[in-house]
Design a binder for these strands. Structure first.
Length: 185
DNA sequence: CATGGGATTGACT
DNA sequence: GTCAATCCCATGC
């Protein structure tokens, strides 16, 4: 994946990332769920402007934004749009394709659909931590590569309190690895 | 410097 | 369906 891919409008990138592959070391999965965030709407962290925390959201497209949620979970985002625009795609769920035994150890779960079916789950399964914040998704250690685009179902974003009505969630239709609640088909 | 809230998950009723 | 765990950082005094 190159920088031009991520430099486009965040809604396009969010849709196109479904079907792509995320790899970290020996563990990898196909993206089955994403959400778009943009500085112009209040649910985006960049909405408050440039702070030490949000600085990365305005950085070079293709940069990783990894932050801690609810004091416990690390969430993985891909910074989008041209440098200077605060926008990112939240990677919310994967279909595991490599390193499944490692994922089972890290997650303490056996079932395949429990390994990466949520934004906090997939970072645990891939061992992605806050130290990977601001690293490049073009060069690794976290890498995103192209895949086959599946049929997409669009819905509203999950777990937010502001701008809840925007249909900015993109899921692979019928996938068992999408997080709950599943969107209507 | 103190406080409060959050792009979640899993255990429990 | 309800609820606690737990930490980064923005905000306000």
């Amino acid at each position: 994946m190159n920088e031009a891919f991520f430099a486009r409008p965040v809604l396009e990138v969010a849709r196109d990332l479904v079907g792509c592959v995320v790899a970290h070391g020996p563990a990898a999965g196909v993206i089955v769920e994403t959400e778009a965030y943009h500085e112009t709407e209040a649910a985006c962290h960049a909405h408050i402007g440039l702070t030490p925390r949000t600085r990365v959201l305005f950085a070079t497209p293709g940069t990783a934004y990894v932050y801690r949620s609810y004091g416990i979970h690390a969430l993985l985002n891909a910074v989008c749009e041209p440098e200077g625009v605060g926008a990112a795609v939240l990677i919310r769920a994967l279909e595991p394709v490599a390193g499944l035994e490692l994922m089972r150890e890290r997650r303490g779960r056996e079932r395949e659909e429990d390994l990466c079916s949520g934004p906090g789950k997939l970072t645990q399964a891939l061992a992605i931590e806050l130290g990977e914040n601001e690293t490049s998704l073009l060069r690794g250690p976290i890498a995103i590569s192209p895949g086959d685009p599946p049929p997409i179902v669009v819905g509203t974003r999950i777990g937010i309190t502001r701008a809840v009505e925007l249909p900015w969630r993109f899921c692979a239709a019928g996938s068992r690895h999408v997080s709950r609640p599943r969107p209507r088909q």
